[in-house]
Structure formats: C-alpha cells, structure tokens
Design a protein around this nucleic acid. Structure first.
Lengths: 251, 251
DNA sequence: CATTTGATGTTATTTTTCTAACAAAAACCT
DNA sequence: AGGTTTTTGTTAGAAAAATAACATCAAATG
C-alpha cells in the first residue's frame, strides 16, 4: 500500500473514529482526490473502513457486524454467542464489579449492556474496552501493558498485582478449549496470567464457551472446570451438571 | 399504517435492537414477504429503521449517522493538524520509543505511520491505541487505569511509576492551551500526571499544538514552554524562536 | 355473489453504485 | 534527460438498488 493512500485512510479513519458515516463523494472531496482513488484505498487497506452503499463506515467494530447473514456459518456461531451472553447477562446486577475476558465470545454481553447500567468493568482486551467506552454508566478499568494483536489484549508483569487490588465481584472467563477431564485452555500464554488472576480474586467465576470449544485442548491450560461456579455453554457441548462444583447452564 | 406492516416493523426493530445490519433480502425472507413490501413498511414507519445501500439499520445507530459537520469547520483544523503531524513525523526514527499524548491533534501522526515502521509507542489514550493497534511494526504499550471518556484516556495512581520504568526516547505532547508566559495547559486534571511524567523521563520533548491553542489558558497547567525541546505549531500562533530552549517550528 | 378496498407481488424504468479497463500524470530510477 | 514504474483520473459497461406503475389477491361490505 501507498504512503499517501495510508495517510488518506488514516485521515478518514480519524474522521469516523467516533462513528458516523461519510458519503464516498464527501470523502473524496475531503481528501482532494477522486472517488475511485478512495475506493482503491479502501480495498487496499486493512479493512478498518468499509463501503456500504456508497457510505463509508467503520468495519472494525464487532458490534456492527451483520447479524443475520444466515447463509454463512460465522453467523450461527455469532447467534450462539448471543444466546450464551443473554444468559450470562442475567447474572449481572447493578453495582457489580465485573471482569470481562478477551475474545469475541463476550462481545454481545458488553455490547448489549444497557446505557444506564451502573457497573464497574475490568478488562485487558482492547475490543472489549472499546465497546464499553461508549457506555456512560460503566466505569471502565483497562489493565494496560504491551499489546498482543493476536488476541487484542494487553500483557504486563504486574497485571496480577493490579488485579488483586481490585474487588472483582464476578469474573466472566472465555476459553478456546474446554475439556471435562483435562481442563480449560486458551491459545496464547500471555492470556494465562490475567485469566488466573481474575479467577483467583473474583467472588463468582463464570465460564462462557460455545459448543465449538467443547472437548478441545489448546496450548495453554489455565484452569480446571471446577475452578468455576457457573459454566454457560451450548446444547452440544456434552457437559453435564454433576454433583460437583460447576453449575452447567445450557443455552 | 397497516397492522401487519407494524408487526413486521416491530419484528425487524427487535432483530436490530442491539445494532448490526440486515440485508433487505434477508429481512424480506425473515418476514415472508417481498422486498417491496419491506420498503413500503419502512417508508410508512416512524423512521426508526432506515435503509442504507440495501442494508437495514437502526436510524439512531451512531455508526450510521451522517457526519454533516466534517465538511465545514473541523476540516480546516484537521488539515492544520495534518500539517503539524507531517512535520512531527520527521522527528521519528526507526527504533524509537515514543510517548504519544491524548487528544485528536496527534491522530494524523499515528494514523499516517508506515505499516512497517519499527517503533515502540507508549500512550494512555484509547483512540491513539486503537490507531496503533493496526500497525504490525509498532510495539504498543498502553498505560491502563480508569477510563475518562472526556479525554478518552486512562488514569491510575501508579502511571508515573510505570512510565518512569520505560525508556522513552521522544515524547509528543499535546495541549489545549499554550501561553508564552503562563505556560502550557490542558482541560482535565487527570491528564497532568501522565504528561508531566512523560516530559520528565523523555530524552526529547516535542509540543504539538495548532494555532487555535495559542495564547489560551486552560484549567490545568502541566508545563512551561521551555520544558520542551521542540514546539511545532502553525503560522498564526505568535510564538517565535528566541535564544532560549524551545525550538519553534512553524508548519 | 359481485364489488370495493387495501395490501401485496410483479415487472419495468430510472438512478445509483460498483468494477474493469484504459489514459494521463506524477514520481522514480538510471 | 529518457525511460520506467506507480499513482491517479476518466470513461464505459455491468450490477445493484430505488422508484414507479400496473397486476393480483384477499378480506370486507352491501
């Protein structure tokens, strides 16, 4: 990609940073180039901006991904996540201090929060923070550090210490693999410390994982199933409520 | 308006209640009627839903609100900021560790960075972090804490300690007010600590402020002009290079 | 039962947006 | 300078969407 092209994209991205749309014609006028050039910039770019019916809009916000493109498969997972999150949301009470884990699983949870909901939410994920930053009722605490693009999270050596200073009420944890015997795992090792710290200091621990994670093992173990008080999952997960600790909720 | 029509609209409104888009064709299939009927429903409705390029969206969705104001006034300032940032960018060398301050002034700087640029960038601003998160060559460090929507920044009591542990090479600082005699100020008190810490520990300090800030005093002072090595500003600022410390660059 | 009325579907037309191809201009290199 | 590549603009054609007009259907009414 071109340097000038990148600068134009940057400018447009900035213009649209807080949402809104821009007619393609406006964008072209703004940058002093033809509409065709803007089109080319967009298709060469990283997909942060997209064109929908002649209107330039942000595409990087999962909140605005198409909901019901029933044709594709991604969306069925999205719908599953939506269902799980609706159940998870019922565990949230006003005044809670929540920990919200990384990934896309919990995005419907934070995106769906009521504007006026009075909560404190702690996270180390950039996408989660972005969604929460728009809610006036939420006090957002982001655990900073070095950014890891692979999981859109921040990692730092004192994240555990900082987390333990916060009075976390409920921890919503995600996983890439959930195995009844072997335990709960994720892809990236830098996610382990925050997850474990959140599990350690939260009063109530909730695991949210859709069917596609069931029976899977990923590189980084971070907990066993009975570290959790509640597990919210889909009907095909094969997990069942036993006498033991975790209460399995099927959504 | 028709009763069935109203019911369809209600159903679609519900489907889009949490944002997202719906293809007109999907909507038609969902309601079991033709696309034309959906179109008629929409134009007869209260305007809560709207059609944009074949996609059905909520009219009050902030993402799809047209940005009317861009063409007008913001534009000239944006262009000025673009100019300042082009000058500022010339001070960046590969391998640098930068501090980038909050606000919109420096957005063109980070948005315009080359994809391959090898840098470490430290910031405490969410918008800056978002722009940088897309650049593969940039190691992004976000100083976390409690989110302040007014400035899109994070604040925490140990931000100063954490900053001083980082080897900041060049600090790009912004201001809401620059006064030759009185000093440099910003709107929010929670910005003061990070700014001062960055100024304290950086090797080179650059102030970037467009003309509209010149001669202005804002609530929170955080530095004097000669705390900076370089000041990048516009032609109308009235600032001039004197014998003293700050080198004034007019862009 | 025929007729009317309103809602819906279908088709055709216009407008707009998208894509591809080529031409012009600018930047780049030797 | 001369030639090459890259970037941008223009044009033309294809695709999609918006609009309008007309046809069809179903319920309601006398």
């Amino acid at each position: 990609m071109n340097e000038r092209s990148a600068r134009r994209l940057g400018r447009l991205t900035e213009a649209l940073a807080r949402g809104g749309t821009l007619r393609l014609s406006e964008a072209a006028r703004l940058c002093g180039v033809s509409e065709m050039t803007i089109r080319r910039d967009l298709s060469a770019g990283d997909g942060g901006l997209t064109l929908i019916g002649g209107h330039l809009v942000r595409a990087d916000d999962p909140r605005y991904a198409p909901l019901y493109d029933l044709a594709t498969q991604q969306d069925r997972q999205a719908e599953a996540k939506q269902r799980l999150c609706e159940v998870a949301a019922r565990h949230i009470e006003d005044g809670d201090t929540l920990f919200v884990d990384c990934g896309t699983t919990l995005m419907p949870l934070v995106s769906g929060l009521d504007q006026e909901r009075s909560l404190t939410v702690v996270t180390y994920a950039l996408n989660v923070a972005n969604a929460l930053s728009r809610l006036p009722g939420v006090r957002l605490v982001l655990l900073g550090g070095v950014y890891h693009p692979s999981s859109q999270t921040f990692a730092s050596d004192d994240i555990v210490a900082r987390l333990s200073r916060l009075g976390i009420n409920k921890a919503f944890i995600t996983a890439a693999g959930v195995h009844a015997k072997k335990g709960v795992s994720c892809f990236h090792f830098h996610e382990v410390a925050p997850k474990q710290a959140a599990i350690a200091c939260a009063t109530q621990r909730l695991l949210v994982a859709d069917d596609s994670k069931a029976g899977i093992i990923r590189p980084a173990y971070f907990a066993t199933l009975d570290d959790f008080d509640v597990v919210i999952t889909g009907p095909e997960s094969g997990l069942e409520t036993t006498a033991g600790r975790p209460q399995i909720i099927v959504a």
